[in-house]
Structures are given as C-alpha cells and as structure tokens.
C-alpha cells in the first residue's frame, strides 16, 4: 500500500495525515483518526450514515477518497459544536425523541445542518429533501423532520431579536 500525504481542515483544525491511496475519507476518519461519530452503514453511498460536511456541502465519506480532501474543510459530528455545548440541531433531536438506535443520527444531523446553513427557514418539503439520502430504520422519520423544523425555528429566533 502506498501512502500519500493529505492536508485538510478537520473540525476547524489543520490535519496532516498520510493515507493509503484509494482509501476513503470514512476509513481515514474512523480507522486512523478514531472519529467514530461517522458511521459505516453500506460503503455504497446508499444509507447516508457516513455523511460529513465538505466545504459546506454534505458528502458521503464512504465514496470520497481521502486524498481528494487535500485543502478541503471537513466537518464531522464531533466538530458540530464546541466541547460541552450542543448545536441547536443536537438539542432538538434530543428534545424531540428523534433518535432510537442512534446509528443514523450523525448523518441526519449533518445533512440537516447543511440545509439550515443555506436555508434558515425551510419548508417541510425542503427538510424532507435534505434527509432524503439518509436511511433511518427506527423512527419513521417523522420525529426527525419535526426536530429539524424545531431547530430551524429556534435558530431563527435570536436573529430576529437582533433585527
């Protein structure tokens, strides 16, 4: 196995890694960096459990070659909020009982974050679209959709106050 260097930003910190050529970002995050918040559900890009944010957009880390992350800005669930704090989406998923087994939760939250970053006032259909690549087998999606809408509402409130 050949190894190549990759420099990227991971959860706001500079990361320099040697990765095996042809290996995926998913493998780098889990097997090399111990960031287990990114889940492996299918290795085929069909379940969304491995979703991470690259340069502001959701990406499937199982289909992303690690060495192509050179110079990119990668966010995983571990980087969503400062230690000890919760992002409004995390709080809304908790309050809304939107997680059961929890395996899809990291991908769901990151997919939702990409939506809310672009569109702070989404419709239900836009929320549905945002998580359309993420499989959940436990919840029936309804609590997840509700939690994302709740989080969006909560995130808009302070902005309105300022305005």
């Amino acid at each position: 196995m050949t190894k190549v260097p990759v420099e990227f930003t991971l959860n706001t910190r500079e990361q320099n890694e040697f990765v095996e050529t042809g290996s995926t970002l998913l493998s780098a995050l889990r097997d090399r960096l111990g960031l287990y918040g990114t889940k492996a559900g299918c290795h085929q890009g069909t379940c969304g459990a491995c979703t991470v944010i690259i340069d502001g957009e959701p990406h499937l880390s199982c289909l992303t070659l690690a060495e192509r992350c050179q110079g990119k800005d990668v966010t995983t669930l571990e980087g969503l909020a400062p230690a000890g704090a919760l992002h409004p989406l995390q709080q809304a998923f908790m309050d809304g009982f939107a997680a059961q087994c929890g395996f899809c939760t990291p991908g769901m939250i990151l997919a939702a974050k990409c939506l809310l970053d672009r569109n702070p006032d989404p419709t239900r259909d836009e929320v549905v679209d945002a998580i359309s690549g993420n499989i959940c087998r436990c919840t029936g999606y309804e609590p997840i959709i509700a939690a994302i809408l709740t989080a969006a509402q909560g995130m808009r409130k302070p902005a309105r106050k300022r305005a």
Partner: peptide, 9 residues
C-alpha cells in the same frame, strides 16, 4: 438525483 450528498458529488 440522489439525496443532497449525492448531488454534491
């Protein structure tokens, strides 16, 4: 086509 992650890729 796909979900947002697939579309981004």
């Amino acid at each position: 086509i796909g979900g947002p992650a697939v579309r981004a890729m």
